[in-house]
C-alpha cells in the first residue's frame, strides 16, 4: 500500500511472500483433511465447511494467538483475500451465464430484496439503544459495516466520531461472527421450512463474499436439488449489494437510522451512560 511495488521479478515476489504462501497452503491441507462435517441439531442441519475450519486454524496460527505469522504477513494476507476470492466470483459468473433465463426470471425479486438491508437497523437499533449505546448505534446498525460502509461512515462523521467507532466495532466483529454465524443462521431459518430456498439464497448476499459463501454453501447442502441456483443467486445478490450497497447506506439507511434514533432514543435509550471502551481499540486500529 505505502510502498511502490519495486520487486517485480517473480523471485523477488516469492522471497517476500513464500512463508505466507507455504503456511496458507499447509492450513488449506489441514482444513481439507478435516473435510465437511454435518450434523443435525433439532431440525436444523449444521454444515461445517473446510473454509470455516481454515478460518479458525489460521486465526490460531496467526499473529495474535500462536504468532506463526508476522504482522506484515497478516496485512499482506488481508490484501490477498480479494485476489484469492476472484476465481470463486468467476465461477459464480459462469453459473449465472449458463443459467441466464433463470436469472432474468428472478431478476425483479433479486433487485427488490436489496431493500431488506434496512433490516439491520430495524432489528439492531432498538437492541443497541436498550444496551445503552448512543451515537455509536448509528454507525453500528446503519449497515452490515463492510469495508466500504466503514469508509463511508468515516468520511461522513469523521474517523474519531462515535458513529465511526460503532461502525468499526461491527466491522471487526462482523468478519468472525458474520462468517460463522451466517451459515448457522441459514440452517436455522431453513429448518423453519417457511422460506423458499431461492429466497434464502438471495438473502445470503449481504456484500461480503466470504459470508455469502458460508451461507450459500450451507444452503446448497441442505437443498441439493437447488444447489447450483442457490450459489448462483447468492452470488448475484452479493454482487448487487457490492455495487449498490454504499449508495443504499448513504441515501436510505443513514437518513432512516438517524430518524429512528431521534424517535426511539428518548423512549428506550438509557440515560447518562455512554460507552467509551472502544476508544482504545480505535487508537490501536488506526495506528
Amino acid at each position: 500500500m505505502e510502498k511502490a511495488p519495486q520487486k517485480t521479478t517473480i523471485i523477488g515476489h516469492l522471497k517476500e511472500n513464500y512463508r505466507l504462501y507455504a503456511i496458507a497452503f499447509g492450513i488449506v491441507i489441514i482444513a481439507e483433511l478435516i473435510g465437511t462435517i454435518q450434523f443435525s441439531v433439532g431440525s436444523a442441519l449444521i454444515v461445517l465447511y473446510p473454509m470455516l475450519f481454515a478460518i479458525i486454524i489460521s486465526i490460531l496460527f496467526g499473529k495474535d494467538v500462536l504468532g506463526f505469522l508476522k504482522k506484515k504477513e497478516a496485512k499482506k494476507a488481508s490484501q490477498l483475500v480479494l485476489v484469492a476470492i476472484s476465481p470463486f466470483m468467476a465461477k459464480i459468473g459462469v453459473m449465472a451465464g449458463s443459467n441466464l433465463p433463470e436469472l432474468v426470471n428472478v431478476g425483479p425479486a433479486l433487485v427488490f430484496q436489496e431493500f431488506g438491508t434496512i433490516g439491520t437497523m430495524l432489528f439492531a437499533l432498538p437492541i443497541a439503544l436498550l444496551l445503552g449505546l448512543k451515537r455509536e448505534a448509528i454507525g453500528a446498525t446503519s449497515s452490515t459495516n463492510r469495508d466500504k460502509d466503514y469508509g463511508l461512515i468515516c468520511s461522513k462523521y469523521g474517523a474519531n466520531s462515535p458513529e465511526a467507532r460503532g461502525s468499526l466495532s461491527i466491522y471487526i466483529i462482523g468478519f468472525l461472527i458474520g462468517t460463522t454465524y451466517l451459515g448457522l443462521l441459514a440452517s436455522i431459518v431453513a429448518s423453519f421450512d417457511f422460506f423458499h430456498p431461492l429466497a434464502l439464497a438471495m438473502a445470503s448476499g449481504i456484500g461480503s463474499g466470504v459470508m455469502m459463501a458460508a451461507a450459500s454453501s450451507t444452503l446448497a447442502t441442505i437443498y441439493p436439488a437447488y444447489a447450483d441456483q442457490i450459489v448462483m443467486l447468492a452470488g448475484m445478490s452479493d454482487m448487487l449489494s457490492a455495487i449498490t450497497g454504499i449508495y443504499f447506506t448513504l441515501f436510505i439507511s443513514l437518513p432512516l437510522v438517524n430518524k429512528m434514533y431521534t424517535w426511539l432514543e428518548p423512549k428506550i435509550g438509557r440515560r447518562g451512560k455512554n460507552i467509551s471502551h472502544n476508544k482504545s481499540t480505535e487508537s490501536r486500529i488506526s495506528q
Partner: peptide, 27 residues
C-alpha cells in the same frame, strides 16, 4: 464452488485482527 474458498478463509483468518476482536465489548 467450495474448492477455491478454503484459501480465502485461510487468508482472511490470517489477516484478522484477533486482538481487536477480543477487545470489543459483549454489547
Amino acid at each position: 464452488f467450495t474448492a477455491p474458498l478454503t484459501v480465502v478463509g485461510t487468508l482472511a483468518g490470517i489477516g484478522l485482527d484477533f486482538k481487536a476482536f477480543m477487545s470489543q465489548s459483549w454489547k
